[in-house]
Structures are given as C-alpha cells and as structure tokens.
Write a protein that binds this DNA or RNA. Structure first.
Length: 200
DNA sequence: ACAAGGATCCTCT
DNA sequence: GAGGATCCTTGTT
C-alpha cells in the first residue's frame, strides 16, 4: 500500500490520530515517520480553531477529510494538520513530531545542521524539515506524488496525555487526553506529560 | 534540567 | 490592537 484511502480520514478524529502514528510523511526526497499527534475535535472543542466558527484561516478544516490544514503560528512557524472526520465537522489532527527516515542532508540544511532526533521533534520543526508553508493548505495527503502520507506499521506502545499550548481552552478541553505518541521514539516533545497506555 | 525572553506577523476583535 | 497548536538561545540551579 503506497497511500491511504481517502475514507481512512473520514472517521472519528481520535481514530485518525492514533492511526497516523507510524505513518510516513513524504515530500520530495524527505521522509518523516509520524511519532506524535494531537486530536482537535471540532466546534465543541474549545481548544480547536473551529470553536470560533468559520474564518478565512480555518476554512480547510471544514472541508474534505484527508487534506492539509496549514497555518502560521506565533507569526513565524507553520503547523501541519490533517483534516479528519466527515466533511463539515471542522476537526483535524495536528502532526506534532516525527523521525527523519530519509533526506537527512536536505533536512539538516533546513534545520540548522540538525541530524538527530531533534530535527523534527516539534510541530514547527517538522514543518520546516518538510519545507511546508501556507501553499500546502488544502493539499490532499492521500495522493501518490508531492506531499503525501504513506501507511506504516503501528507502534508497539502508545503514550497519551493532554495537548500542548492550549491553556486558553476550557479546563475540560485543556486537560482531555488527546495527545498521542509512539512510546519508544526519541522524537516526542514534552514526554514527561505523557503516560504509557495499558496494552490490550 | 529548567526558566525566561525575544523573534515575528497574520488573524480576528 | 492583542495574542497565538512555537523555537531557539541564554542564563541559572
């Protein structure tokens, strides 16, 4: 399997988020294994951009699942989300971190020489490693060329915890366990806030 | 290890 | 006009 079926993304956002752990983001010669994600559930989730209604910035989130929602954060970083659930839900999965699998040289050139697990262990770093910017907003991620997601083996263990940087949200949303990470990966941010999920 | 502060600019009020 | 799904450097324990 070289790409996801578009229907993969048209499921509840938490399922999509968990399903993206272990997948690979490809762009040009760069490949990054997804190691950390966050679920943003829609207008009823006060941490989610769509909780303020539809705006020019968040338009992609209201559109078809499986497409990118890219926005600028703090004026200088780009963050990549994958639109999830059925079209019109206004939900997405933020891709927060990954491990560089291929294209180490070009990633190092984009990341100040960094070649280790810190090359893409944050949402802004990951977007920089993949050379993403606002032009990738709305881009489908289930295709065979350009920026795309490729399925990969699921992680052996998963870490779960609250989302990062959402102190502005209502307490229940701020504390909800909606961040997921690959347990044995070095490319995970704020690891101390995560706990290992009981295996089944 | 951890804390603090600056960079930087678009979006929405 | 305020503030943000962050990153990096510098300084202190």
């Amino acid at each position: 399997m070289t790409h996801f079926a578009p229907t993969f993304f048209a499921r509840p956002t938490v399922e999509v988020a968990r399903g993206l752990l272990g997948a690979t983001l490809r762009h040009g010669d760069v490949a990054v294994r997804v190691t950390e994600v966050e679920a943003y559930l829609g207008p009823t989730d006060s941490a989610c951009h769509t909780s303020k209604g539809r705006t020019a910035r968040n338009a992609a989130m209201w559109g078809p699942p499986g497409r990118a929602y890219v926005y600028r954060c703090y004026g200088l970083h780009f963050l990549l989300n994958v639109v999830s659930d059925v079209e019109g839900t206004g939900a997405a999965v933020l891709v927060r971190a990954g491990e560089v699998l291929a294209g180490h040289d070009v990633v190092a050139s984009r990341r100040g020489g960094r070649r280790g697990s810190d090359a893409a262990d944050g949402p802004g770093k990951l977007a920089a490693a993949l050379a993403l910017d606002l032009s990738f907003n709305h881009h489908p991620l289930y295709g065979d060329a350009g920026l795309r997601l490729v399925p990969g083996p699921p992680p052996a263990g998963v870490l779960v915890g609250p989302r990062i940087g959402v102190d502005y949200a209502a307490p229940a949303d701020r504390d909800a366990p909606l961040r997921f990470a690959v347990a044995d990966s070095p490319a995970v941010s704020y690891r101390r806030l995560l706990t290992r999920e009981a295996s089944c």
